[in-house]
Design a protein around this nucleic acid. Structure first.
Length: 1022
RNA sequence: GCCUGGGUGGUGGAAUGGUAGACACGAAAGACUUAAAAUCUUUUGCCGUUAAAAGCGUGCGGGUUCGAGUCCCGCCCUAGGCACCA
């Protein structure tokens, strides 16, 4: 640290200019920061006050924690600031806001630990945070500052919540509509065929039944439709924290799930909850991804999270012992209705089985115990996929809707309660899990899908030579597999294969080929495939396309004797007969047909791909795609789309959050709070009650008024803040429609990809609801998303108080200055990658600024009218490079180019005017020193309102260029030629290059490849 | 197991299929200095060599190409996400 302070230049002999001899950021930076604070040059103009185009750039809102900023925070703020400053200079009206999201657990915990009111704690933390941010000279529009815990802000969070509460989702119009409309429909015709989204089943009712309902019953019914609704659900309960946690607040540990914060154990518990019906928007959330410029991995994460799968629901009638057949039924969900005829059993979740106990199913104590045990596991969040599959037979049989055969119904631990219908059809031949289960309990395995083998090399071929073929899987007594190694050119390693000759049975062919090719004659056919597989491929050796009708044969050799003199002569030398282990065979055999034989006979693996349907009555011969539709239709099933995503729990049993603006009257009827905000009252204790109710339940007046005692979860306030920034001071609406229309959408959003399934998804959801009401003009809130990597500690670990390796930006600024800190953050590596902080490397950035400063002194003293040509070119190349690199968030290469330019300029004369261009170009990275020097250079205009320089195209081109000369692709020399020289000129020069001449001596030049301004490659005979 | 990224000097990292290692840190040598720091100059992938030349080199093995860090096939390692989702 002390190193830089000593690092002071004494040795400037003459007084160069009016600027101090030594670069001292402490003399420059605070002065400008104060000036910016006062003059507000970075204020975004309201829509009516400018004709400039809007540009809205946003960093994810920070959570002001008690420990303040660490060096990782400024990474994305530096990036936003670089872009914002450039865009401003390019003539855009830039919105670059900052605010604080301060509700939630950490602030509450901090308050409890430090015995201060969370409000005070937040105020203190915000102050610390803001001081730190301002020291780095970010060009935020501080007038737009928001704080999600401010009641002027959360008033609108509550307002949006009520919007959700008073809406349902119309599945035909595909949008949210007021719930009153639905009530009118119910009054007119009940809920039959109503196109309103529900998350679970609702009993049908007609208009009379609706009228007869009590107000409470009506309320309950409407709850099934509202976008914000109250329900009872199994949630993640953390006893130690006395609260419910969202899935993304839970992490896995070796002892099962624990809370992300504190690492306390998490179990399941049924509790009354508020939910948001985000599942209604699953499809729009999914399809919207195609319209936005987000990183692929984030889109992928959201796609997986939403988890769309298309399949069918098929009803099986049940025969429960002691009850009439067909009295009960069960619906299964499958994505593979084409495999229906391969279903040899049904399996249901323990949770579903338990409900059957209430409707007349009699079973043994053991089975009941089994059910309870599995459910207990599930409650512990134990869904481990590697766990052994278990199950019990229920004594119930189901009628297969296709074959009308009776198949057994099992309870199995691998059937999950929360997905699909909680019941599946077991198709062991085509599903690995069902297969494992069937083998364990000796359930039949029926193969109904045959793969289609078409090799890519016959794409488009229509004429095929047709043949009957076999592929034989031959096992030795010791389990080794017989293979023929044809060598790399003739197809590599294969099993035994051959052509069926006239009048031959396939098994005869197999035995004959075995003997012909290897001489073994003690083989015994164990089994063979009934179906004939159609295999199209291109036989390279014979240069024809084959269509092979193939059957698979499984042969076991009794012994390895009787190796006759046969026949290896036949194609002697072309191949080697080799016995290898199954494992090796699996590795080395690549031919699809042979791989299938190996998997089927050697490994007994189920085939889970699609193909041609077999043994399925009239559907045999259809492709999977066709059969899915046909089979579903024929058994009265319906095609459905399912999503993995669940409705979002929207309540915390906590104090420090937005109150939910609803109350219940004495009858239990829920009413909206008309006058918002419903402010958070003070409490004596923030400790959770531990019963599941929040601390607000301890306030008598709150309870008495019937207010909801849960508060909103941490992500509520951050789900719409991007809109509030557009018009942060507005007291009448959440933002003036004029402003929303003008700013339209966040152009670029910077933040971490870890928010993909949390904040980003919720914000998109809220935005879509507001869109349905015409309150925002766009379907998506964030047009482009740019994710950052983390700054790791220098030990390679994550920065954390725990490891004591946190770097505080204040200290870095103190030692090196804000400009150096920013420059190094930009320079250290690609923005998207995680990179360790290096206290060693930052000095290079400080040196660069010092050289720039010194150059300024020289430039001002010499005051030349025209720069050297070399310098001029370098400057325009810099303009070009930096302009492009900022657009693509490649800040590190932009800085590298600036350093390179500096190296060129050291030996050049530079005019004040050209030097000013450099200052403008570097202003986004190092705003303080460039603004200071820009003024010293005599520029009247302030640097941020100056126009972003344009590179002169003429100056980007060099007169001469060095190109490489290759001989047979290897570099043997370089030549310097005029830019854009013709091939003749370059060729002549290349052939005369000293070192090249040595290689050409007496050799014939076959051809010359010339890529203008790049390379010339001379191909000679070796 | 599945889906995304990523493997390049001592380190962080550059490289539209066209001279691999830009830029920076570090290291070494020299200049200045009584000395040190700072600054400036030079060198710095490995192996050679007085200096060259040649050879080797972008995780591993193949392939396509006049030419591959970059494209294709198959592995290995690593970071992140998902995972009994029928």
């Amino acid at each position: 640290m002390a190193r830089v302070q000593k690092n002071v230049t004494k040795a400037v002999t003459k007084k160069a200019s009016s600027i101090p001899v030594t670069y001292d950021p402490k003399k420059i930076e605070p002065v400008l920061q104060k000036k910016w604070d006062k003059e507000k040059p970075f204020k975004a103009l309201a829509s009516g006050k400018t004709r400039k185009k809007p540009f809205y750039i946003l960093s994810m809102i920070p959570y002001p924690s008690g420990v303040g900023l660490h060096i990782g925070h400024p990474r994305s703020y530096t990036a936003t600031d670089i872009v914002a400053r450039k865009k401003r200079m390019e003539g855009f009206n830039v919105l670059n806001p900052m605010g604080y999201d301060a509700f939630g657990l950490p602030a509450e915990q901090f308050a409890i630990q430090n015995k201060v009111h969370p409000k005070k704690a937040v105020a203190i933390n915000v102050k610390t945070f803001e001081g730190q941010l301002k020291k780095l000279g970010f060009s935020f529009d501080w007038d737009k500052k928001i704080n999600t815990t401010d009641h002027e802000y959360y008033k609108w969070t509550q307002w949006i919540f009520l919007k959700l509460y008073s809406s349902y989702y119309d599945t035909t119009k595909k949008k949210a509509l007021p719930i009153e409309g639905l009530v009118k429909i119910f009054e007119k015709r009940g809920n039959q065929n109503v196109s309103a989204f529900v998350s679970d089943t609702v009993l049908g009712f007609d208009k009379n039944e609706w009228k007869k309902m009590s107000p409470l019953q009506k309320q309950e019914t409407l709850m099934k439709y509202r976008l914000a609704y109250e329900g009872v659900a199994q949630v993640n309960w953390c006893e130690a924290l006395g609260t419910v946690l969202a899935n993304d607040e839970i992490v896995d540990s070796k002892d099962g799930p624990v809370s992300e914060r504190g690492g306390y154990p998490v179990t399941k518990k049924n509790i009354r909850q508020w939910f948001l019906r985000i599942t209604a928007y699953a499809d729009r959330l999914l399809s919207g991804l195609d319209t936005i410029a987000w990183p692929n991995n984030v889109k992928e994460i959201e796609k997986n999270w939403i988890g769309k799968s298309e399949g069918a629901e098929i009803v099986f009638t049940l025969h429960v012992p002691g009850q009439s057949e067909g009295k009960h039924e069960v619906t299964v969900f499958t994505t593979r209705p084409d495999t229906l005829f391969g279903a040899t059993f049904l399996a249901v979740s323990a949770e579903l089985a338990r409900t059957w106990l209430n409707v007349g199913w009699q079973t043994t104590k053991d089975v009941k115990e089994y059910i309870e045990n599995v459910i207990k596991d599930h409650e512990k969040n134990d869904f481990d996929a590697s766990k052994e599959k278990t199950g019990v037979f229920t004594q119930i049989f189901a009628t297969h809707p296709g074959t009308k055969e009776k198949i057994p119904v099992w309870i199995a631990n691998y059937v999950l309660p929360g997905y699909g219908t909680g019941a599946i059809m077991g198709v062991p031949a085509h599903d690995e899990r069902d297969f494992e289960f069937a083998r364990k309990y000796n359930l039949p395995i029926k193969n109904v899908i045959n793969p289609i083998f078409v090799r890519a090399d016959v794409k488009g071929v229509t004429n095929f030579t047709q043949k009957n073929k076999i592929v034989a899987f031959v096992e030795a007594p010791d389990g080794k597999v017989l293979t023929i190694n044809w060598g790399p050119e003739l197809g590599g390693r294969l099993l035994i294969g051959g052509t069926v000759e006239n009048g031959e049975q396939p098994s005869q062919t197999a035995l004959r080929e075995l003997q012909e090719e290897t001489g073994y004659c003690n083989g015994k056919v164990v089994s063979f495939s009934e179906e004939i597989f159609d295999y199209k491929y291109f036989a390279t050796s014979k240069n024809v396309a084959h269509q092979a009708f193939t059957r698979f044969v499984h042969i076991k050799l009794k012994d390895l004797e009787n190796k006759g003199d046969a026949l290896e002569n036949n194609e002697k030398g072309k191949f080697k007969v080799e016995w290898i282990s199954k494992e090796q065979a699996k590795k080395e055999i690549v031919e699809v047909l042979h791989v299938y034989a190996l998997e089927k006979f050697g490994y007994n693996l189920p085939f889970s791909g699609e193909g041609v349907v077999a043994r399925s009555g009239t559907f045999s011969g259809l492709t999977s795609a066709q059969a899915k539709k046909e089979i579903t239709k024929s058994v009265g099933g319906k095609l459905v789309t399912r999503y993995k995503m669940r409705d979002a729990i929207f309540a915390r049993q906590r104090y420090w959050g937005e109150p939910i603006p609803l109350y219940k009257d004495k009858e239990g009827l829920i009413h909206e709070v008309k006058k918002l905000p419903l402010t958070l009252p003070d409490v004596a204790s923030y400790e959770p009650t531990g019963t599941g109710e929040g601390p607000l339940a301890n306030i008598a007046s709150w309870k008495k008024a019937g207010y909801e005692t849960n508060t909103m979860p941490g992500w509520a306030g951050s789900s719409w803040y991007h809109l509030r920034y557009m018009d942060a001071q507005n007291k009448k609406v959440f933002a003036d429609p004029k402003e929303i229309k003008y700013w339209n959408q966040v152009n670029v959003y910077l933040g971490g990809s870890e928010h993909a399934t949390g904040h980003l998804l919720y914000a998109r959801f809220w935005h879509k609801v507001l869109r349905d009401y015409g309150l925002v003009p766009t379907e998506e809130p964030f047009k482009q998303l740019v994710t950052h990597g983390f700054i790791m500690a220098s030990d390679g670990r994550k920065m954390s108080k725990r490891w004591g390796n946190v770097v505080n930006p204040d200290e870095v600024v103190e030692t090196y200055g804000a400009d150096t800190t920013r420059l190094y953050i930009a320079f250290m590596g690609p923005y998207g990658e995680s990179i360790p902080w290096s206290e060693e490397s930052i000095i290079g950035c400080r040196r660069f600024i010092e050289r720039l400063y010194k150059k300024a002194q020289t430039v001002l003293t010499e005051n030349v009218l025209k720069s050297d040509a070399m310098a001029e070119k370098a400057i325009h190349k810099l303009i070009n490079k930096v302009t492009k690199d900022i657009e693509s968030y490649s800040f590190n290469t932009a800085v590298a180019k600036a350093m390179e330019t500096m190296n060129v300029m050291d030996g050049c004369k530079v005019s004040v005017k050209d030097f000013s261009l450099i200052l403008q170009i570097l202003n986004p990275f190092i705003p303080h020193v460039t603004e200071y020097l820009f003024k010293e250079c005599g520029n009247r205009e302030g640097i941020h309102t100056s126009l972003w320089p344009k590179a002169s195209k003429k100056l980007l081109v060099d007169d001469e260029i060095t190109i490489g000369v290759q001989i047979n692709g290897k570099l043997r020399g370089t030549i310097t030629v005029a830019t854009n020289s013709g091939e003749d000129v370059v060729k002549r020069a290349a052939l005369n290059e000293n070192n090249v001449l040595k290689y050409l001596d007496g050799k014939e030049v076959i051809k010359v490849v010339y890529v203008p301004n790049r390379i010339i490659n001379i191909v000679i005979k070796p």
